[in-house]
Each structure stands twice: as structure tokens, then as C-alpha cells.
Amino acid sequence: MSKVIDLKGSILSLTILNIYSDDIQQVKLEINEKVEQAPSFFSGIPVVIEPKVSLVDPTFLALLVEFLYQLQMIPIGVRSEDPGIQDQAEYAGLALFPPQEHKARHKTVPEELKEDMPSEIGALVIKHNVRSGQQVYAKGRDLIVLGSINPGAEVVADGHVHVFGKARGKIFAGAAGYADAKIFASHLNPEMVCIAGMYQLSEDIDDKAKEGFVEVALKDNKLVFNSKILG
């Protein structure tokens, strides 16, 4: 009989659960067998699920997660490049781990980032105000906010951020490391701006940058505020 699952340690000292079958019953059976051999060893351990086959059943991950919890394991994430599996993971509340081979080139190079962009085309457009306590995340794309970003609100984009109302909360562009990401705003008076991990707090932003249209960019590891962008 071919291999159905195996368990092994990883560098993060998380346990990776490799899945070689898309039959949930079969997988459950095999996991049960493994756990029965050493129940105390598996109790309470964090597990990352790595499906090696595509999962046709849209409830596969949800069922698996439920089952793992029953066995006292703690499923925390999924490692997969398959968009279908990633969707399921998101639905099941699991973290997404990047496939290991890609880790090194994930950073800052725009052409390569494009490869990792999800299939959605164009920016995420928010037509209302983002209010205190609310958070918006444009994953793998630009974010356009037509309303204001109020104090206590947070907007995050892996690409650029454009704000048409008043930008007064926290703004993150290039959140996945894209260093060429920019923030464009016509009324910028934010609690914080951050591009690819480099941030600046309100009090450190020059008052001149807070009048009129401004572009925020990352240059030589520093944030620059350019209000002459329109010539």
C-alpha cells in the first residue's frame, strides 16, 4: 500500500503533517493509528498541514482541522501554493506558510512579487470611511480608499495605497516587503506611515508633508515625502 501520510519535525520545531491522499476518511484513519501509538506525544502539539495533492473536496481542510482538534492537536497553518487549498485554509482560520523554496526571493524584488500575486486583478477599492478599530488589507494588490482613514483605523496593502479622503490613521504599503510601494494622499496627517517595514510616526513627519497632495516613498531605507510630484 502506498504512503498515505507521514509526520516529521521541521526547523521551526513545528510538526508538518504531509497529506498524500484527498480521501478524508482514509487520512483520518491513518492519523488515528499514528496517534494511538503515542497519544501523549501528540497532545497539544502545533501542526502545519502540507497537502501534497490537490484537495477537491472543499470541506477537506475544515474536516481535518476538526479531527485534529479532537485528537488534542493544534492545527495552526497550511503550507501550499495551490490557490484552492489557500482559500480553504483561510476559511478554516489557518495561517498560510510560504512554500519553503520561495522564502529567499520573496523580498523586495517587484517582478518576483508579481508571481505571488493572487488571481484578483486591480486594486481593492474601499468606498467608505475606514473607522477607528477597523482594518483593511489589500492582499497582493493596491488599495484605493475613497473615504477617509480615521484615527485608530489601519489600512494595509502589499502594493501602493491611495487615499482620496483624509489619511489620519495608520497606513502600511508594501506590507509583504515590496520596497517600491508608495502612499499617495491629498490630506496626509497620519498616526503612522510604513513602507516595506520602514515606518515613521506622526510627530516625526514634517508639517509641510501634511499640506496638500503628497507621495510617500522608500529611498535608501528612509521614508521620503514628496509634495512636488505633480511638477
Partner: peptide, 13 residues
Amino acid sequence: VRDSDRILGILQA
């Protein structure tokens, strides 16, 4: 005002 802003967010969601 900040707290009202939060409750408005909740109202809308």
C-alpha cells in the same frame, strides 16, 4: 469622538 467612530464602524458591520 474616537469611541463614536468605533461604534459607527460596528453599526455598519
